[in-house]
């Protein structure tokens, strides 16, 4: 092989190695936990009506949650059309749309990640909880929020279940349409409740895990 050919071959190989390394690095990039207080913890169904919450140094009053009284409005989920259910979150416009097949179920303004960006990707909901506690942040953006309502945790190959990303109701702010979270998708409580009662996995319990039969709804975040 001439020197020139060898040089060109080496350049090509170097370029290929660089691209491969870069792709590998992106695919294994560590995603921070959405709620550092519950990082890698099993989601816990929890409601404490005696506690106040704090968000950005402000005291907030959580909604009262009665776990014994809750029953989903539609035990089997609300059917609005034919086909698979799918949720789309648009990070640029801070909007959520939900479809069943080609039939629109709902649209809503949301608040995605500000202090930690909400990672784009294609996800599946793996568990729903009527309410749970979320805490994390640090310094000025620290928070400790009991009774976070209508929680739908999602995951994929790059964002694990333990990272704790979810769609859920948010009672501590009303600035929807603008990023306000630590990675989760915040929704108005009425919107989160409506979505929660529609998505899979379906059921009447206050905590519902998806399985191969009772599958979780897909979520696409772009």
């Amino acid at each position: 092989m001439s020197k020139k050919a060898a040089f060109i071959t080496a350049l090509i190989l170097a370029g290929g190695l660089f691209s491969g390394f870069r792709a590998l690095k992106q695919s294994t990039a560590v995603v921070p936990c959405a709620n550092s207080g519950q990082c890698n913890a099993t989601p816990k169904l929890e409601a404490d009506n005696s506690m106040s919450g704090t968000f950005m140094g402000q005291v907030v009053t959580p909604p009262s949650v009665d776990l014994s009284a809750h029953a989903p409005k539609n035990v089997l989920g609300e059917e609005t059309g034919v086909g698979e259910k799918h949720i789309y979150v648009d990070l640029a416009t801070q909007t959520l749309t939900a479809y069943q097949g080609s039939t629109l179920f709902m649209t809503a303004t949301v608040s995605t990640g500000k202090w930690n960006p909400t990672p784009p990707g294609d996800y599946t909901i793996w568990v729903k909880l009527r309410a749970t506690r979320m805490s994390g942040g640090e310094g000025a953006d620290a928070y400790d929020l009991p009774n976070v309502p209508w929680v739908m945790f999602f995951y994929n190959d790059h964002v694990s279940k333990g990272d704790g990303y979810s769609l859920h109701g948010a009672y501590w702010h009303d600035n929807f349409g603008h990023p306000m979270s630590h990675g989760c998708v915040n929704m108005r409580q009425v919107d989160a409740e409506k979505l929660y009662n529609w998505v899979g996995p379906e059921g009447s319990s206050n905590i519902i895990y998806a399985d191969t039969v009772n599958t979780g709804t897909k979520v696409t975040i772009r």
Binding site: M56, W172, D174, G177
Partner: peptide, 11 residues
């Protein structure tokens, strides 16, 4: 003014 950051704080 975009909304409320908390019960008493406007953004």
């Amino acid at each position: 003014v975009t909304g409320w950051a908390s019960p008493y704080l406007l953004v």
